[in-house]
Design a protein around this nucleic acid. Structure first.
Lengths: 216, 216
DNA sequence: GAATAACGATACTGTACGGTATAGTATCGT
DNA sequence: ACGATACTATACCGTACAGTATCGTTATTC
């Protein structure tokens, strides 16, 4: 029975591969591409260096594999999952909270940092990351806007642009501050407040006539 | 006359220092901290490696010196210079155009990349960068808002937050796409269009009652 | 239970790099 | 003109690292 079900060898191989990628993630994210050594990765992964090279041809290949795996993990989530029928304000709030939860998470920040840092050396990974993450969020929200437009009759002029604007308002400069290590990570309450403000601001840009004079 | 005016020796020293920093900028920005070698920097700067170490104690010190110098250069500009008395819309437009011109410039993008990348290894530089750049822009705009409030009577509830929101809308996701190498740098016309849209959107968030129904 | 493949441990190679030492040359101040 | 200082060029040291080779061990397959 060479491979009834999945042979044990294959499963072990998958385990090894996961272990290697986990170790690579830890070391690469903490030290960057240049600061990470293959010896350190092997040790962190609990694997001999030979095994490393059995699974990945080179340091570059390992790095690329890691980023691709991280992007695939992002892709597993459906960003628009349960929001199809929701009213606008609720949908925006949930979109926003979900965004901040993932985007402010240390792992996501580390991924941002390293992909931005190595965008020169690995141009394809920058594109892959953008398409797997931000791009999909934007597309999902834009699609939701389109659905809303069909329902309510009155549509948004440029759903894509509006979607981008919403996410910009949500993530805010806090995102940059986190990437730079200026701020500490905000807790759930702070994140919720930030989303609420962003939703309020954004709704004014969509339907200015519904809001009275604001200043004060 | 050991130093009537500035002695020639110190002028030469300043020149050398500038040359070294220029070389360091080119190499660091192109290859990152880890990918940059002191030999390459020396060669690019047209200077012997010994001279490098006469001016900077170590690679870290040189890197820190470079970032500090870059931040000082940013600080020389007064972000709020000629906008004091301008009406709101004009002021925002000029704020916005100035922001995009500098923030989308390749050197600024490279600085962003490298500071974000090395925020772990050099936490102080991340803070320095933020305070020299984004923070000052935000503060300048917030101050302008305060001035407007004093003039017009009706103020903005949270000028700082509003200033951040404006700049978020202006730089947009294009900034991330540029950092990731997904988009090519937009030309002046595209930047102007982006600013105009951001200004329009932002004004709706400030004075929703002044704008009629928008969708369509 | 033998054959086979994967793995661990470790030693090794070549090289690139950070930093230093040295020796000789140009430049500056007086 | 002379002494001091800055600079170049180059060789060098130690180390760290990417990648390879070897060998003994374990575990899987049939």
């Amino acid at each position: 029975m060479t491979d009834r079900r999945t042979s044990r060898r294959v499963r072990n191989a998958e385990d090894k591969r996961r272990a290697i990628l986990d170790g690579a993630r830890a070391v690469f994210m903490a030290n960057g591409f240049g600061g990470a050594s293959m010896d350190a990765i092997a040790e962190t992964a609990g694997v001999s260096k030979m095994t490393l090279y059995r699974y990945f041809d080179s340091k570059e290949a390992l790095f690329a594999g890691l980023i691709e795996a991280s992007c695939e993990k992002i892709l597993e989530r459906d960003p628009s999952a349960p929001l199809e029928g929701l009213p606008l304000k609720s949908a925006l709030t949930r979109f926003g909270r979900q965004l901040l939860e993932t985007v402010y998470a240390p792992e996501t920040l580390a991924l941002h940092r390293i992909v931005i840092a190595e965008a020169n050396r690995f141009p394809a990974l920058g594109v892959l990351f953008y398409r797997s993450g931000p791009e999909r969020n934007i597309a999902a929200l834009a699609e939701y806007f389109d659905g809303q437009a069909a329902e309510s009759g009155s549509g948004i002029a440029d759903p894509r642009k509006s979607a981008e604007e919403f996410f910009e308002l949500v993530r805010g400069y806090t995102h940059l501050r986190l990437l730079l290590g200026v701020d500490a990570a905000p807790d759930a309450a702070a994140r919720a407040a930030q989303v609420d403000r962003a939703v309020g601001t954004f709704l004014k840009t969509l339907f200015p006539e519904r809001h009275g004079p604001d200043p004060g």
